[in-house]
């Protein structure tokens, strides 16, 4: 790959105009080497887990001696993965819908209006995204248990909403700022009530932004370990937590291949969700068109 791109080593004065070498050769090689190392690590990690999940026994060889698909079936039954995946999807969908419903109006207001205390409110919405999940997760989990919500799916949903709502606000605000406010004024001048302005004009314009925020929240929620782990129990574990439990279960962890099979399932779920979500994102950016009015 490197040979197709990296410019051949040349002295600086030999560079002809239009030469594409932005990064001179030695550093270019360094970059490509770094990237290659990263890719090897990444592909190695991914493929070993997949190979491991199909191997009967695999210790001191390049490949397992025998192949089998039985770990998936075993894992599915042993960890009740049908239930776990249902919980995972349920939690993710509810968190996405609720955080978009709560976050979008707030993002609209923060993008469009100035009011006393706006800075403080911005900070309030920024904090859950930047402080460690454990920091607010532990007091929150303590409360959840004292409210009697410990180990319920509701608790898992609630704790996951804490960083998700601010996340929606942070991603949506710039999207809304891009929409020319005159468009809303124009709708009002056409006789549209506030409600109609939202449903007929703003909502269609915001669809790309909402989808982008929704996908990000979805990925974060499915992958969120810390917060879920603090409040979930056997009936409310999401996939990532139940894999962790399998890896660390007291009294000798589960068979390694079992965990690998679950990890593959996890990544598969994530990919399916991502691809499904990306199908709905309209690549034509309506918002961008507003700004690109030709001036001529």
């Amino acid at each position: 790959m490197a040979t197709t791109v990296a410019a051949p080593r040349r002295r600086k004065q030999n560079l002809v105009p239009g030469d594409k070498a932005i990064v001179a050769s030695p550093s270019a090689w360094f970059v490509w080497f770094g990237m290659a190392a990263f890719l090897i690590l990444l592909i190695g990690i991914l493929s070993t887990v997949v190979v491991d999940s199909f191997g009967r026994q695999w210790f001191a060889n390049w490949l397992p001696q025998e192949w089998t698909a039985s770990w998936y079936g075993q894992g599915w039954e042993r960890f009740d993965l049908g239930h776990v995946i249902t919980v995972t999807v349920l939690v993710a969908v509810v968190v996405v819908v609720v955080s978009v419903l709560i976050g979008t109006p707030a993002a609209y207001l923060l993008a469009r209006k100035n009011f006393p205390g706006k800075k403080a409110i911005n900070l309030l919405f920024l904090l859950p995204v930047i402080i460690p999940p454990i920091t607010f997760g532990i007091p929150l989990a303590t409360l959840m248990y004292s409210w009697g919500l410990g180990r319920t799916v509701l608790a898992v949903i609630l704790v996951n909403l804490v960083p998700s709502v601010p996340f929606v606000i942070l991603t949506m605000t710039p999207f809304i700022e891009q929409i020319n406010p005159a468009i809303e004024s124009a709708a009002k001048m056409c006789g549209a009530s506030i409600l109609k302005v939202f449903t007929k004009v703003l909502a269609p314009l915001l669809v790309p932004g909402i989808l982008a925020a929704a996908i990000l929240v979805l990925v974060r929620t499915v992958g969120m370990f810390e917060l879920t782990f603090l409040v979930s129990g056997p009936q409310s574990d999401t996939l990532v937590v139940s894999i962790y439990r399998a890896m660390t279960s007291a009294g000798g962890s589960e068979a390694r291949q079992l965990v690998s099979a679950m990890a593959v399932l996890y990544t598969g779920t994530m990919l399916v969700i991502l691809i499904a979500a990306l199908r709905f994102v309209n690549p034509t950016q309506l918002v961008a068109r507003v700004r690109d009015n030709p001036d001529d």
């Binding site: 990690i45 070993t48 887990v49 990925v219 370990f225 894999i243 890896m247 994530m270 991502l274």
Partner: peptide, 17 residues
């Protein structure tokens, strides 16, 4: 890797490295 999640990464590292 955004889709991998920490747990699969950990499992992969343990086996691969």
């Amino acid at each position: 890797p955004i889709t991998l999640g920490t747990v699969l990464t950990a499992q992969g590292l343990l086996i691969f490295a």
